[in-house]
Design a protein around this nucleic acid. Structure first.
Lengths: 201, 201
DNA sequence: GTCTATAAGGCGATAGAC
DNA sequence: GTCTATCGCCTTATAGAC
């Protein structure tokens, strides 16, 4: 069993730091202390901060895409949805908010190359959800009250915001609401009116 | 007509800077140059950066709350929804993302006092939307497929994320999707199945 | 590859003249 | 109130020894 190279450790810890404090919220000094090297060693692997962050984002996209692709499309749709939603709730407990979600707020301070990766991340997740909803729609033979692609945009946005605001409010309420609504939509509860009582008049 | 005091200008420009680049993304130097004073003058009004930001957030909450309260609750519900959603699309064209949405990502680097204001902002908006949806529900006499409070959480989260990602992708698609869904929900299109065609099999 | 040393400038913040 | 001047520290980044 081989230990992780310094380069790998740098990328790993940089990812955590960015997700916690953002691009402008961490320094080469912070990162160096975490890994146990001097800042000049970071420059050896990543001459400029942008080089480091770009590689962190590239790796994140790669893994995130692989995780999406690993959800077997022949499974029952509801189970696919659960495999999509499950890890999100785990991440929250570790204060591990989505890298793309974090950086999307700082986008004006980021190089264009990074911006492209962030867009790709949002696009890929929206498309995945939209496809799931479309299949659920045809499987049921009854359309949603809202086009699947639009519903996917709303749900993924709500998921992203739910993750980000979880550490603000110390609660995963918002993520849970979005996740439940996604699962509900796949189950078809958005077509059949359910039994919750309306508010008082 | 009196000109704005230096203090007011500082607060105004600081708000813009934070909304563009975040708490860690602007300096007293940036702000001083915008207002046309020296950095030491900023310290005269706001001894520490946290004092400045806290006051910016307090003011934002105050105005935001006033804007919510200014929507006449005796108007038709759909018109209330339109008055809520309309300004959001305007802000996007000015690259003016929500202050609370921006700072919510940086929450780990912020003093607790600020955190409280951010929570209050999200809470207030969710509650306003939830009340609107509840009234729409009783007016129609038919419940949503999803509880209004949950729907409000999802929709406001999607709105927030739509605003933030607009300047990443150069498009207001996500905000539009969330806004349209909110308007649709008030109109009742989430209870009656509409006429959009399901996807190919 | 990793270090020491250092550059060149940014940062928030303070003292004190006016 | 606003300024000049300055402090002490942090930032990214580089040069060169080992």
């Amino acid at each position: 069993m081989k230990t992780h190279s310094v380069r790998d450790q740098l990328l790993e810890h940089a990812s955590v730091l960015i997700r916690q404090r953002g691009y402008n919220g961490f320094s080469y000094r912070d990162l160096a202390e975490l890994v146990g090297v001097k800042t000049s060693s970071i420059h050896y692997y990543f001459p400029a901060k942008d080089d480091l962050v770009l590689e962190v984002v590239r790796l994140y996209r790669e893994r995130s895409q692989a995780r999406l692709a690993a959800i077997d499309t022949s499974l029952p749709l509801i189970e696919q949805a659960e495999r999509y939603v499950g890890p999100l709730r785990n991440d929250i407990e570790l204060n591990q908010i989505c890298l793309a979600g974090m950086l999307s707020a700082e986008v004006l301070a980021l190089p264009d190359a990074i911006r492209s990766y962030l867009q790709a991340h949002f696009q890929a997740n929206e498309t995945w959800i939209a496809n799931l909803l479309r299949r659920a729609e045809t499987e049921r033979g009854q359309p949603y009250p809202v086009p699947p692609q639009l519903l996917a945009k709303v749900l993924y946005g709500a998921i992203q915001n739910g993750i980000i605001t979880a550490r603000m409010s110390g609660s995963s309420d918002r993520l849970d609401a979005a996740a439940d609504m996604l699962l509900g939509a796949v189950r078809g509860s958005m077509c059949a009116v359910t039994e919750h009582e309306p508010a008082m008049a």
